[in-house]
């Protein structure tokens, strides 16, 4: 397997990371997503996604990586975030790494949903959501403030934001969805909901390195100790790779 370097983020400053989620080794989530994409690179290249959407792109690290492995001109890389600094950083990170990302300030995929329904939808959907369980109000405020707290505050079971994406049927019929989840999100129930509500087959593979996030600074994510990260890889039915 080809091993690609993680994107160059040297242009982002300490100040940027006070406002935008930092891909950091001690948090792991950003990198587990890169690993999952890299592990599937051959299948993804074969599937030839033409519309990639990363919800909550933050620094832009993951979409940049996707563009690097799939080819900058092979796909449209849409990136949304509610945080304007994140959209700006996403833009810059694409540029720094010679790929074009198209950042849009939007909650989830709201501004695209109507057209996605008509044009077949998203071929590659990526979401490292605010997944930390918090009080609902805390999540609501973080969404409203659209600042760094919006990167982690996930409300009940850490699922308030992710649930909205799961309810939105925006995947194309051969679409794939990479979603970061932690144990507290109740991974089996996410899987089950995807199966039941959208006709998805059982998880094709369960990417998990059982990484524990217990070294998180409490200041940033107070409930984050003892998390287990999973990248769920959900594919639509009739995917020829399903039996693999």
């Amino acid at each position: 397997m080809l091993s690609l370097p993680t994107p160059d983020l040297s242009h982002l400053t300490h100040e940027d990371y006070e406002r935008v989620y930092e891909p950091a080794a001690n948090k792991e989530d950003t990198f587990i997503l890169l690993d999952a994409l890299e592990a599937d690179v051959e299948e993804l290249l074969e599937a030839k996604p033409r519309i990639c959407l990363e919800i909550g792109s933050g620094s832009g690290c993951v979409s940049t990586f996707a563009a690097k492995i799939l080819g900058p001109s092979e796909c449209l890389y849409l990136c949304t975030d509610i945080n304007k600094h994140a959209a700006r950083c996403t833009h810059l990170t694409g540029r720094q790494n010679n790929v074009t990302l198209d950042p849009v300030l939007s909650s989830l995929s709201d501004a695209f949903n109507q057209r996605f329904r008509k044009c077949g939808g998203v071929d590659l959907l990526i979401f490292n959501p605010p997944y930390v369980p918090t009080a609902d109000e805390e999540a609501l405020n973080a969404q409203g403030d659209a600042d760094i707290a919006g990167a982690w505050a996930g409300g009940k079971l850490g699922m308030e934001i992710t649930n909205q994406v799961l309810n939105n049927d925006i995947l194309s019929h051969s679409g794939r969805f990479y979603l970061v989840a932690v144990k507290q999100n109740d991974v089996p129930s996410i899987q089950e909901r995807m199966n039941i509500e959208q006709g998805m087959p059982p998880l094709r593979h369960h990417y998990s390195d059982r990484i524990f996030l217990d070294s998180l600074p409490l200041r940033i994510r107070p409930h984050a100790a003892d998390e287990v990260l999973d990248v769920l890889h959900l594919s639509q039915p009739f995917d020829k790779h399903l039996t693999a």
Binding site: D102, D110, Q114, R115
Partner: peptide, 23 residues
């Protein structure tokens, strides 16, 4: 930047604005 490929996928999503809201 807004490129026309992206513009072609965006519609107005103000509550209740569901017709003639594109492009």
């Amino acid at each position: 930047m807004v490129r026309l490929i992206t513009h072609n996928l965006l519609s107005c999503h103000v509550k209740g604005c569901t017709r003639n809201n594109f492009p």
